[in-house]
Amino acid sequence: MNPINIIQSTFVPLPIENVDTDQIIPARFLKSSEKEGFGTHLFNDWRYLPDGTPNPDFVLNKSKYSGEILVAGKNFGCGSSREHAAWALAGQGFRAVVSSYFADIFQNNALNNGLLPVQVTQPFLQEIFAQKSESTLTINLYDCWIQIDKTGSRCQFPISSYKQECLLNGFSDIDYLISMESEIEAYEKNTRATA
């Protein structure tokens, strides 16, 4: 996993609430057995017209919006547990998603792929949406804040110190868990004994 520390970028606004993972990546694209290649289908059915051409009204097809940060309405990533949603966002080049809250499973999937979920207050979210397209945001994972660079307005975001350290260093949960092998075996032995 690539470490994250500071992200400074323009952002892509998606002021829609309850964006579910079926919108992020529709089920018919889950037939691949790889982790790569989902980026082109990110938001497929909003992004492309039925004939496959880009939908000019969708934000990813508007040349004035780009960047490594997606900013979306509340409850982003609800629905299916498909990690393909996080892979598709990362595949498109996003490194952080900002919303007023995230669905639990999506949040874990994002963290496990080095995609930073940044939870901000509802007023701060609206403040970001009010910015012009050339406006940049800075996300500082050392101190857990996000800033609208033009105004200097800041919002702290929550993250456990364990996850913060993982992301800053590019560590994965699996490395931590593997290091616990003997403790896991001891737990199993103890549980069997008391069953």
């Binding site: 990690e83 639990d104 999937n109 456990s160 994965s172 949960d173 699996i174 868990l177 896991i184």
Partner: peptide, 23 residues
Amino acid sequence: AFGIGTSEVEMVLATQCLLQTKP
């Protein structure tokens, strides 16, 4: 009982454990 992503599927395959925040 709860749903997990594919990275977590791998963790459980490898260690029969998960790192979880208590809801």
